[in-house]
């Protein structure tokens, strides 16, 4: 079986980590690693790994549009808004790792199948990839969830300048994702940056207000969901199985990164990349 030809646009830490994951994939082949800075560490790494690189950014993708089936966009929301119509015109499927929200929000453990035919899918946020499946599981076990809240704590060092300046957008996008997937009107997202050394690994807590929580069903659904996520995020682990404490339904996970290019503590960055790869691999396996 021939591999699906993919390109990565954006050669920062996220794009470079994605590259390592693509190179390991049995069904994906990176035909182009494109960005603007030929001297970036990511470009250097890609060149050393023998991957074709381009410093022409979007034009690099356009030039080789005919052979690219799918592109991971790891640039910025602002740039993705410009890129998306070009990808659409070229018939290249876009997996958007920015918070641009051009395409449908995709959490592979929840709605992979219904996203496979879409031309553009959005990977929401790191906190969203960790928390939404849990919120979804809680909503499945408890029909009347009144309110859902998620708290993520990440290592300061795993939050780059773009994340730091865009905290408000992160919170908004994560809340929108929770609303959509848990079918719950009232949601809240909270993000903490922790500067402790050694760096803390990402932890995400989901809390819910449920009138009469079915703890047994919740535990079963959450356990099932965690198992599904672990298929594509091996470092995703249940830290606290659902309990009721002070009238709150609470569950907590920890996400260890794979340590491909990004450090292991950056589970927040790893999980969104793992989700993007899971989506692309599913598409590759299904593609004729």
């Amino acid at each position: 079986m021939s591999k699906l030809k993919v390109a990565i646009l954006g050669t920062g830490n996220i794009g470079t980590d994605l590259l390592i994951k693509v190179l390991r994939s049995p069904v994906l082949e990176c035909v182009l690693f494109a960005g603007r800075n030929l001297a970036s560490p990511g470009m250097t790494k890609a060149s050393l790994l023998g991957v074709t690189v381009s410093a022409k950014g979007l034009q690099g993708i356009v030039d080789r549009g005919a052979e690219i089936a799918l592109v991971f966009d790891a640039t910025s929301a602002e740039d993705h808004h410009k890129h998306a119509p070009v990808f659409a015109r070229l018939g290249i499927k876009a997996v958007d790792l920015t918070p641009a929200k051009v395409g449908r929000m995709c959490v592979p453990a929840v709605n992979l199948a219904e996203c496979l035919d879409l031309p553009n899918v959005n990977m929401i946020t790191c906190g969203g990839q960790a928390s939404i499946p849990l919120a979804y599981a809680i909503a499945r076990a408890n029909p009347s969830v009144e309110y859902i809240e998620t708290i993520s704590s990440i290592a300061s060092r795993s939050a780059g300048p773009a994340t730091r300046i865009n905290l408000d957008e992160y919170l908004q996008t994560t809340e929108n994702g929770l609303q959509l997937f848990a079918a719950c009107e009232r949601t809240k997202a909270i993000l903490n940056l922790n500067p402790a050394q050694p760096c803390v690994h990402m932890q995400t807590t989901v809390m819910a207000k449920v009138p009469h929580p079915d703890l047994q069903a919740t535990r079963a659904k959450v356990a099932d969901m965690v198992a599904r996520i672990r298929h594509y995020v091996p470092g995703y682990q249940l830290l606290l199985e659902p309990i009721v404490e002070s009238g709150r339904l609470v569950t907590m996970v920890r996400v260890d990164g794979l340590g491909d290019y990004l450090p292991k503590y950056a589970g927040n960055l790893d999980i969104i990349n793992c989700a993007a790869i899971a989506y692309a691999e599913a598409f590759a396996r299904r593609a004729p």
């Binding site: 708290i151 704590s153 903490n192 940056l193 922790n194 500067p195 932890q203 606290l240 404490e245």
Partner: peptide, 16 residues
């Protein structure tokens, strides 16, 4: 664990 303000969720985990 050098928790910071806002990490109240870790209280439950630590107690557990």
């Amino acid at each position: 664990r050098k928790v910071v303000g806002g990490q109240e969720d870790l209280i439950i985990e630590v107690a557990d």
